[in-house]
Amino acid sequence: MEFNSKLLEELVKTYGPSGNETRICNYIKGQIENYVDEIIIDSLGNLIARKKGNGKKIMIAAHMDQIGLMVTDIDDNGFLRFTNIGGVSPLVSLHQHVIFENGVLGIIAKEPVEDISKLRLSNMYIDIGVKDKKEAESLVNIGDVCVYLPHYCENENTVFTSALDDRIGCYIAIEAIKAIENPINDLYFVFTAQEEVGTRGAKTSAYRIDPDICISIDVTGSGDTPKAKTFAVGLGKGTAIKVKDQSILTHPKLRNIMIEVAKNNNIPYQLEVLEYGGTDSGAVHLTKEGVPSGVISIPTRYVHSTTEMVSKNDVMNSLKLLIKLLEHNIEF
């Protein structure tokens, strides 16, 4: 299987902040609809695609939303004030380009701030290059949401771009949908909404599906950069199988099945003990009577910045693990 750069580039360049996932949802739908048996979009905007099989009912969750900025106020001179959707750092955002759903461009700037470490989003604004409020209001409304302007770069080994969190998970799920021809398990691929604001889409879609098992695919951090906090996950060292984060302790049986599948298929893997953060499996495993859940993580540097970074090998190994796992007769 080749690394599909075109697909990933289109994924990260398609607009879809939390609560405004329509465009990204439609894009993914277009990619997968010929490969699945059923497809629906629920009231929170989750895209749920089923590939029928007779074995275990498995939910595969990759979130399609991304962090963004919501306009809350437009001043007399046409400057936009905003609030964050998901984890947005003021320092990372400063002087970045942003783009709205309708294509309006802007940059993020700040009021004069003496101590830059005290920079807050409330002291920052978006400049869309207009002369006054009226002109601004003809382009942007209060409540509209923008995202960092995506800029996709890659070399042989590495991809550099915003929104890898979690379009890389969507990429892996899409490629798995295309690759799996005769599923033995009953597969529900869910491209979830609103993960970045609290795994909200995963919660409601899991309730609807009521799966036997869930696997989420999401980015994790890395501990291999200068003076990074101890974290035994690095780029280029394989896919990561989650042991824990703040939202979940992976079911030990499921974790061992994942490790076994990786070993049997010579897929390099790392074990991930993450001290912060959470992902869709956190919400899914507490649904109804409980759903044993695991996570395939893609080691990622600089998460939630404008230039997140992953290794293509890790991505391909994560994809391979997902496919092999889904094709595995899981005894639980």
Partner: peptide, 17 residues
């Protein structure tokens, strides 16, 4: 507690559950 990493000298770093 849970093992977080294994250091070069065989010491273990850990985090809490």
């Amino acid at each position: 507690l849970v093992v977080k990493s294994i250091e070069e000298n065989g010491f273990i770093k850990f985090t809490n559950i």
